[in-house]
Design a binder for these strands. Structure first.
Length: 471
RNA sequence: GCUCCUGUAGUGUAGUGGCCUAUCAUGCAGCCCUGUCACGGCUGCGACCCGGGUUCAAAUCCCGGCAGGGGCGCCA
């Protein structure tokens, strides 16, 4: 279930070992006395014996409870316990009796079990459960989310969130290796950071405030402060009434910002980070991918394969993308947004990761850098803003930022924002400002790509959408 | 904001006007068997979202409500 090779599992007051330690190194434990804990995944046996398949956060192990080894009361309570009840069992590790195999077939590898001498039921599970942990019965998304704590116990769901943790870990490690430091920006803000999307208003004592839609302005200020290269993994809030497989109203954004860099420089950081995440997952976490695949196969889906993408990712500039879409017969002109059905056309040619650099300045936020000499064939002003897509889906939005205070103020005016509201930001650029660039990446969307999940709700523990604010 | 669709046992489903005191699986309860391990066998429990209407007859058709899902726009 989890790669425990590098983890030191220190005993707790409840257990001496994890189940996986015993299951994978049983030989070393034979005849030794241990105390183990876990959920009872299956309870079988009547009369003189009882078998419990225990599960903890590391793996599984069978407990064998036999009349005479424990009190009659312990045996009976165990036999009558409901599935998913939690147990603490003290006993001796032994090799499992080998199963009967048909003539001529080889015996399976040795397995181990704990032969109980003491059984302590920590908590009895109520019945029936709202959804089955191991049952081969489908469950609707709504029931799953209402009972996420149970849903998470299902192997493939559990694996999904362990993979999420790995993505964050490997991403962090990679950025740190390139000189980035982690920051935390405020999530309570006074004014709309970027305009455009709707914010959630909140009461901040006796004033009005909002939940942050993006760490954008603050990570830039951190760079102005000579933190040089920063990243943040934190929540962003958007009060948009969307209702799709890829949108939530609260999501975790993986953001970077770096000094002395252009749009192209941070695209390179991103493709290095993504390939490194893929490479590490492939090296270390195939077991988690296998858990996901086991479910996908039982569900009639293709198993996922972790293919490390090759660098560089294709760059399909905005202008080229428009040409490509036009060629397919779609009605689009320079200056139009590339919508989902347009992205489908690009995805026919570029089905994996690709960048769309150099969007029209008119379509990008005020803080994006533009160079007057960089224009389209038709004369439209280009920007240093880019997107990263995977097929039809947008993963990232980023770009080189405007570091000229005067231009920033003009940009604010051009998009109809009041520069006075942004003094806290523009002031940061008045006393020397390095050219800089960055991006924000949707963690859940990246996990969707990695795992083939068809809905962002699969990749977020407790998703917040238009209809759902609990649990 | 605009669209399309769906509500049947705890869970997932079958059902398209009468054969529905509603199918199957899983679950749960009980019994039998058993060093079990995809265990097996038997018995039982448990449901048509709510309110109107059409009809001799409604889970099924119509209207309203409530709840949920898909898609679009916008975005990560």
């Amino acid at each position: 279930m989890v790669n425990t090779s590098e983890v030191k599992w220190i005993p707790t007051n409840y257990r001496t070992n994890t189940l996986n330690e015993i299951a994978s190194n049983g030989k070393l434990f034979i005849n030794s006395e241990v105390t183990l804990c876990g959920f009872a995944e299956i309870i079988r046996g009547k009369g003189a014996v009882c078998f419990i398949r225990l599960r903890d956060g590391t793996g599984h192990l069978q407990a064998f409870i036999k009349k005479g080894n424990v009190s009659d009361q312990e045996l009976e309570l165990s036999q009558n316990a409901s599935r998913e009840s939690t147990f603490q069992i003290k006993g001796i590790i032994a090799e499992k009796r080998a199963p009967k195999v048909p003539e001529g077939e080889p015996l399976p590898p040795a397995e181990y079990e704990i032969v109980a001498s003491e059984v302590n039921i920590l908590s009895l599970a109520e019945t029936p459960m709202p959804l089955g942990i191991t049952d081969k019965v489908e469950v609707g998304m709504d029931v799953r989310l209402d009972n996420r704590f149970l849903d998470l116990r299902r192997k493939h769901v559990n694996a999904m969130f362990r993979l999420r943790s790995k993505i964050l870990q490997y991403g962090r490690e990679h950025l740190i290796s390139e000189g980035f430091g982690e920051i935390n920006s405020p999530k309570i803000i006074a004014a709309a950071a970027e305009g455009g999307t709707n914010l959630f208003p909140i009461k901040y004592f006796d004033r009005n405030a909002y939940l942050s839609q993006s760490p954008q302005l603050y990570k830039q200020l951190a760079v102005m402060g000579n933190l040089e290269r920063v990243f943040e993994i934190g929540p962003a809030f958007r009060a948009e009434k969307h209702d799709t497989y890829r949108h939530l109203n609260e999501f975790i954004s993986f953001d970077i910002e770096m000094a002395w860099a252009s749009d192209e420089d941070v695209m390179c950081v991103q493709e290095r980070m993504i390939t490194q995440i893929w490479r590490k997952i492939k090296e270390n976490d195939q077991n988690l991918i296998d858990d996901v695949n086991e479910f996908r196969i039982s569900d009639g889906k293709e198993p996922i394969v972790v293919n490390v993408p090759t660098i560089p990712f294709p760059r399909v500039s905005y202008c080229d993308a428009i040409e490509l879409i036009k060629k397919s017969g779609s009605d689009i002109k320079w200056g139009d947004d590339i919508e989902a059905h347009h992205a489908d056309i690009i995805a026919e040619k570029y089905s994996e990761f690709y960048f769309i650099p150099r969007w029209p300045m008119s379509m990008k936020p005020f803080y994006i850098f533009h160079d007057k000499s960089e224009v389209s064939k038709t004369g439209g002003q280009l920007s240093r803003g880019f997107d990263l897509n995977y097929g039809r889906d947008e993963m990232t939005s980023g770009g080189q930022r405007e570091h000229r205070a005067g231009v920033l103020t003009q940009n604010l005016i051009d998009v109809g924002l009041n520069p006075d509201d942004f003094d806290f930001y523009v002031d940061g650029f008045r006393y020397g400002a390095p050219p800089h660039a960055g991006w924000g990446l949707g963690v859940a969307r990246l996990l969707m790509v990695l795992t083939g999940a068809g809905n962002v709700r699969e990749t977020v523990l407790f998703p917040r959408d238009r209809k759902r604010c609990t649990p």
